[in-house]
Amino acid sequence: MDRAELAGFLRSRRERITPADVGLPAGRRRRTPGLRREEVAQLAFISNEYYTRLEQAKAPRPSREVLAGLTRALRLSDTERDYLHHLAGAPPGPAPGPSREVRPSILALLDRLPLAAALVLSASYEVIAWNPLAAALMEDFSALSRRERNLVRRAFLEPRHDGRPLYGLTDSGEFAASAARHLRATAARYPDDPELVALIAELREGSEEFARLWDSRDVCAGPSLCKTFHHPVVGPVSVICDVLDITDRDQRVVIYTAEPGSRSEEALRLLSVVGTQRLDVPG
């Protein structure tokens, strides 16, 4: 355990977080940047005395439970989490849940695909990154809460008032079945993730179809290479679906492209200009 470096690392991470970042009131007399020690201790569910001793390089080795609490409280990235564990002399085990941190190079890749709708899915089917054309073709994900950006939840638990499947997908049933199978494999990799456990319980309780698929215990799903979206502005858009695995983050990049010279390619070009505006709504 490197007590001195651990203390310095904790201080540096604490000072970069504002109270607003973690839902705390700013208050008035803040003489130092970032959070107070007692606020970090509260968020990590440990005593203020013990956290203070950690920052003073005087505390005994923290347990894995304490390290997990500090990771949450200080909003550490996956790399920072691993570094914290190594400083504490407790090499990190498997990640507790699906990673939501997208590499900058992947974000740059999305921006370099102007005529392809591209997004990144976590292992639990949460949309965690997207480019403008994906938002125009599917939905303005920036306007949704994190909960609403989970495509499995949307597919099974949110019936649409107009009777259309999610995003007007012609293979919505195949997508839902494939997602359920992938989610079962994800659950085996992250059995202790409370968010994932709660999601599966919610799906099983709220959807008979999901419960049936879950109880079948199927974990294999073939790739769906072609899809058609029925868009309210440009009509049907048929696309080729390619999926790139990001193995170190347990994420997938989904890329939708249209056949060159096709009507669907023209529709994507129009959407790239229109964006998320709704031209079908009277002004």
Rank of each mutant, 00 (worst) to 15 (best):
Ala136Lys: 03
Ala129Cys: 08
Val253Arg: 02
Ser124Asp: 14
Phe156Cys: 05
Asp193Ser: 14
Arg14Ser: 03
Ser172Phe: 00
Arg249Leu: 13
Ala59Lys: 05
Asp2Val: 08
Phe156Gln: 05
Thr276Ala: 12
Met138Phe: 09
Arg249Pro: 00
Arg149Trp: 11
Arg149Ile: 02
Val243His: 07
Ser216His: 14
Val233Gln: 05
Glu126Thr: 08
Arg147Ser: 13
Arg252His: 04
Ala258His: 12
Glu205Phe: 15
Arg16Thr: 09
Thr71Arg: 02
Ala177Thr: 11
Ser105Asp: 09
Asp82Pro: 05
Asp245Ser: 15
Arg112Cys: 10
Pro92Ser: 15
Arg212Gly: 14
Arg154Asn: 14
Gln56Trp: 01
Arg252Gly: 07
Ala187Glu: 00
Ala258Lys: 07
Pro159Asp: 10
Arg278Ala: 10
Gln277Tyr: 09
Glu195Arg: 15
Ser105Ile: 10
Ala44Tyr: 02
Leu203Tyr: 01
Glu266Trp: 15
Cys226Ala: 13
Leu213Ala: 15
Leu115Gln: 12
Ala57Ser: 12
Ala180Gly: 06
Leu70Arg: 09
His231Thr: 02
Tyr51Gln: 02
Ser99Ala: 12
Glu15Gln: 06
Pro91Gln: 11
Val233Arg: 00
Val120His: 02
Ser99Gln: 10
Arg72Ile: 01
Val40Met: 00
Leu10His: 00
Ala73Trp: 02
Tyr167Pro: 04
Leu54Glu: 01
Ile246His: 01
His85Val: 13
Asp193Lys: 12
Val22Pro: 01
Leu110Phe: 10
Leu144Trp: 11
Val120Asp: 13
His85Phe: 06
Phe229Glu: 03
Glu65Trp: 06
Thr52Ser: 03
Gly93His: 11
Leu110His: 01
Ala180Arg: 04
Leu24Ile: 00
Asn150Glu: 10
Arg189Pro: 04
Phe45Gln: 15
Val152Gln: 03
Tyr190Glu: 10
Thr186Asn: 07
Pro159Ser: 13
Arg31Tyr: 04
Ala90Met: 11
Glu101Tyr: 11
Pro165Asn: 00
Pro60His: 10
Ala135Gly: 13
Ile17Met: 01
Leu271His: 04
Pro19Lys: 06
Ile17Gln: 07
Glu259Lys: 15
Ala88Pro: 12
Gln277Gly: 06
Ser262Asp: 05
Arg269Gly: 10
Leu54Met: 13
Leu67Ile: 05
Gly283Thr: 12
Pro232Gly: 02
Ala176Ser: 05
Arg263Thr: 13
Ala136Arg: 03
Leu109Cys: 09
Leu107His: 07
Ile17Phe: 09
Ala176His: 02
Ser124Phe: 08
Ser47Asp: 03
